[in-house]
Nucleic acid binder design. Sequence first.
DNA 1: CTGGGGAGGGGGCCC
DNA 2: GGGGCCCCCTCCCCA
Length: 261
Amino acid sequence: MPRSFLVKKHINSAKKPNYSELESPTVFLTPHIYKGLPLPVIPQPEILSPAAYSPITVWTTSSLPLSPLPSDLSPISGYPSSLSDSSSSKDHSGSESPRSDEDEQMLPKLTDPHGVEAEKFQCGLCAKSYSTYSGLLKHKQLHCDAQTRKSFSCKYCEKEYVSLGALKMHIRTHTLPCVCKICGKAFSRPWLLQGHIRTHTGEKPFSCPHCNRAFADRSNLRAHLQTHSDVKKYQCKNCSKTFSRMSLLHKHEESGCCVAH
DNA sequence: CTGGGGAGGGGGCCC
DNA sequence: GGGGCCCCCTCCCCA
């Protein structure tokens, strides 16, 4: 399901949502911002930062930004109301990282507009500046490049990671240490197991504020919220038909609409 | 074929 | 360093 319409919901890590509240199946109250609003009405641009929400934007598979469809789940009680999430930058630190451009790291840095301070050589990875290229080179060789280089290899597959912690996390996907006591199914993460256990218990802690539906999985609630939206976010670049999910758009395109491509 | 729900996986970030 | 959590993503199934 397309989940890229999601945005982070808490300003920073120091103020995380009260998940204990979320875990309660009955704690979801209609948020105040919906009071008086006829349902279903999804977009609440007024509660979102302008940069985070563009209700009329329709994305195609070729024009998708990293987070093309910001929506918000803060209406669900238990989530903080703040939306100007400065920590959202973390979402862009991974896949969007331009770190692969080695040349970029070598670009001289003009640090003073008046030329008082001459050009500096700045490390593209940690932003440290050096007055000489050789200084930068030494820094890169000793620190950043070494850290950036993937040097931890998985013994079960060919994947490599930049840190031992990341590798260990990955290895869990092979060892599957979290086992369901009910059916014996194994998972890599405890929270995956928790979600699975809900399929046994029938617990559905995540309720839709617009209808009576409830979900065991937060991601599925987000996907469901899209169905309440008037604006279908994903548009076929050929026939301009729009879809609520990227996967539906993909299926549509693969079904022959975009054979011209 | 489309729309939607259910279930699960992976990497990253923060504490 | 590990745990918890988030976001993103995919696949499957069904109406």
